[in-house]
C-alpha cells in the first residue's frame, strides 16, 4: 500500500507546529511577571517556528492534490462539514491563532517593552541599562497587554488541541476504510503532535534562556538570573505534561495497534510507536522533570518524531480493511 507522504508530512508538520504553539500558550499562561522578558523571546521564537511548520505542512498538501489552483474550492465548500473541510478549518484557525499569539507576545509580553525601555532616553534616564526600563515598561505592558497575552495563549492552546485532533479525526471519519474507524487514531495523533511540540518548546526555551543567562539582552539576562526557581518550575510543569502525553500516546497506540490489522508491519509498529515514540518520550520527559536539560528534550524530540512519523505511516502500511473480493 503506497504511503501518501504529502499527507504524512502535513500531519507531522502542522500537528507538531500546532503543539509548539499550544505549549507556548501554556507557558505564557503559567509564566510569572519576572520571567516575562526572556519568556517573551522564547514565545516569540516558538510562534514564528510554529507558523513556519504549520505553513510548511499546508504546502505539503499542495503536493497531494493534482490541481493546486483549485484549492480555494475547499474554502468555498467549508460549510459542508466534511472531515477534510474541518481539518482545513483547524489549519486556518491554527495559523490565525499563531499570528494573534505572535502579535500579543510582542505587544504585551514585556519583552518589547523592555527593549523600548532599554533603548529609549526615558529608559536610560530612569535607571540602569534596560532593567529598570523593562520593569517599568513591563508593568505598563501587564496593564495594557497582559490580558491580550492570556487570551492569545488560551486561543493558542485551543487551536493546538483542535489541529492535533483533526489530523486524526479526518482519518477516523472516512467511512470506506474500516481499519481507520477507531477514536484511538485522533487521540494518538493529538497526543503525539503535542509531544513533538512540547519537546520542541523545551529545546527553544533552553536555547534562548541559556543565551540570555550568559549575556545577551541585558534585561532578559537580569530577569533570567532572578528567576531560576520559577524557570525550573515552568520546565517541570511542561515536562510533567509531556510525560502525561507520552502515556496517552502509548495507550492510544496500543488500542489502535490491537484494532488495526497491522499484518507484516506489526513488529515495526509496536517497536517504533508505543516503545520508542511513547515509552522513549516518557523516559525523556521524566528525566527532564527530574533534572531539566536540553539533552533530554532533544532525546524526547527524536523519540517523539520517530513515533509520530511511524504512527502516521502505519495508516497506509497496515491493512486498510479493503475486502479481498475487491483486490485486483
Amino acid at each position: 500500500m503506497a504511503v501518501q507522504w504529502p499527507i504524512v508530512l502535513f500531519k507531522l508538520l502542522a500537528g507538531g507546529g500546532a503543539g509548539l504553539l499550544g505549549f507556548a500558550g501554556l507557558a505564557a499562561l503559567l509564566s510569572h511577571e519576572a520571567s516575562r522578558p526572556w519568556l517573551a523571546r522564547v514565545n516569540f521564537a516558538a510562534a514564528i517556528t510554529s507558523l513556519v511548520l504549520v505553513a510548511a505542512g499546508g504546502a505539503c498538501v499542495l503536493l497531494q492534490v493534482a490541481k493546486p489552483a483549485q484549492i480555494m474550492a475547499v474554502v468555498r465548500n467549508i460549510s459542508s462539514g466534511s472531515p477534510i473541510s474541518l481539518e482545513f478549518l483547524a489549519f486556518a484557525v491554527t495559523l490565525a491563532a499563531g499570528v494573534i499569539f505572535l502579535l500579543a507576545s510582542r505587544v504585551g509580553g514585556g519583552e518589547t517593552a523592555g527593549e523600548a525601555g532599554g533603548g529609549s532616553a526615558v529608559g536610560v534616564a530612569a535607571g540602569e541599562t534596560g532593567v529598570a526600563g523593562a520593569a517599568a515598561a513591563g508593568e505598563a505592558g501587564e496593564v495594557g497587554g497582559g490580558m491580550a497575552v492570556k487570551i492569545a495563549a488560551v486561543l493558542a492552546i485551543a487551536a493546538a488541541l483542535f489541529m492535533g485532533f483533526m489530523t486524526g479525526y479526518s482519518h477516523m471519519a472516512m467511512p470506506g476504510t474500516t481499519a481507520w474507524h477507531t477514536p484511538a487514531i485522533p487521540v494518538a495523533f493529538l497526543a503525539s503532535a503535542l509531544l513533538l511540540g512540547g519537546f520542541l518548546y523545551l529545546l527553544l526555551l533552553g536555547l534562548i534562556r541559556g543565551r540570555a543567562a550568559v549575556g545577551g539582552d541585558a534585561a532578559a539576562a537580569a530577569a533570567a538570573a532572578r528567576t531560576p526557581s520559577r524557570d525550573i518550575a515552568l520546565v517541570k510543569i511542561i515536562a510533567i505534561s509531556l510525560a502525561a502525553l507520552a502515556a496517552l500516546t502509548i495507550i492510544a497506540a496500543v488500542v489502535y495497534g490491537l484494532f488495526a490489522p497491522l499484518g507484516d508491519f506489526a513488529i515495526a509498529f509496536w517497536l517504533l510507536v508505543p516503545v520508542i515514540g511513547g515509552a522513549g518520550s516518557l523516559v525523556a520527559a521524566i528525566l527532564d522533570w527530574r533534572r531539566p536539560a536540553s539533552s533530554w528534550a532533544m532525546l524526547g524530540l527524536v523519540a517523539a518524531l520517530i513515533g509520530a512519523c511511524v504512527l502516521r505511516v502505519t495508516l497506509w502500511l497496515a491493512n486498510t480493511g479493503i475486502s479481498p473480493l475487491l483486490r485486483g
Binding site: A66, P68, T177
Partner: peptide
Amino acid sequence: TGCKTCLAACPYSDP
C-alpha cells in the same frame, strides 16, 4: 482538486 479523499471514503475502493 484530485485530493483522492473520496477514495478513502468509498468502501469499494482502495484508499
